[in-house]
């Protein structure tokens, strides 16, 4: 164990040379490589971070747009539903109104049909009643009935009102001498009856009349007097015809 100065100095020199060699050929290149790699990693990290931020921003933008679209979609859907509701309500109202109108028209039509039917039935019933009444009166008709009707005719003629008398007289005045006053009877009238009728007509017409008497079985019972334009009905045929016409008019 002794200190050799030559070795001591040479070791110092050797170490410094080794330091230079390693610094020049090992440390600098390796550290430069490490620094470059670290710098590259930093840049890549920064770029990755930037990309991540951009992706995050895009994601947020996308989510915002998505939310806006969803909101817009919801608003449009609500609006469409409201419009549909409104349109449906309006269509239903129109349909309901149309149905009511149709129902009213149908009711009117039905009422008219029913009324027409009822009228037809009434007419049929009246015709049937007229037919049966005529058949029954034909069976009841007799000279006595005709005489009774003549008596009733004479009474009514005597009880005519002034206006009716005026009409009868006007018809009598309008007769020319050659015109006939025709008296038709369902059964043959005796002379007394014929004179009574002639007297009553002359009195009512205010002039002398010479009626011609004829028999007409179609009258069933009673008489029919024709004075010019004026006709006096006192028989069952004309009465039935009167009721039949009246029934038709009603």
């Amino acid at each position: 164990m002794q200190l050799d100065w030559t070795t001591f100095i040479l070791e110092i020199i050797n170490f410094l040379v080794l330091l230079w060699i390693l610094q020049r050929f090992l440390y600098k290149p390796v550290m430069a490589s490490l620094d470059a790699r670290q710098q590259r990693i930093k840049q890549e990290t920064a770029r990755a971070e930037q990309l991540r931020n951009e992706a995050e921003a895009l994601r947020l933008q996308y989510e915002t747009r998505l939310a806006e679209w969803a909101k817009e979609y919801e608003a449009n859907r609500h609006q469409l539903e409201a419009e549909l509701q409104q349109t449906r309500g309006k269509a239903l109202d129109e349909l309901r109104k149309s149905l009511l109108d149709e129902a009213a028209k149908k009711q009117v039509r039905d009422s008219a049909v029913i009324a027409a039917h009822e009228t037809a039935l009434i007419r049929e019933a009246a015709a049937e009643a007229y037919r049966q009444a005529a058949q029954m009166l034909v069976r009841l008709a007799s000279p006595a009935l005709t005489e009774a009707i003549v008596e009733m005719f004479l009474a009514d003629l005597a009880a005519l009102s002034d206006s009716e008398l005026a009409t009868l007289r006007k018809a009598g005045q309008a007769l020319i001498p050659e015109s006939l006053v025709e008296v038709r009877a369902a059964h043959a009238l005796d002379a007394a009856k014929q004179d009574s009728i002639s007297q009553a007509l002359a009195t009512a017409a205010g002039r002398l009349l010479t009626p011609s008497f004829a028999e007409d079985a179609g009258l069933i019972a009673g008489i029919r007097v024709v004075v010019g334009e004026c006709q006096l009905h006192a028989n069952l045929l004309d009465e039935l015809a009167f009721f039949r016409r009246r029934n038709r008019h009603e």
Binding site: T6, L10, E11, L18, L22, L26, P29
Partner: peptide
């Protein structure tokens, strides 16, 4: 006086030098 210690040190330096050269030749 060159001692064995110095010679060995030179060999070590040579070894490190060769290592650095090899590393440099292999590229980074």
């Amino acid at each position: 006086v060159i001692s064995n210690t110095v010679i060995t040190t030179w060999l070590i330096m040579l070894g490190f030098g060769l290592l650095a050269l090899l590393l440099r030749l292999s590229g980074y």
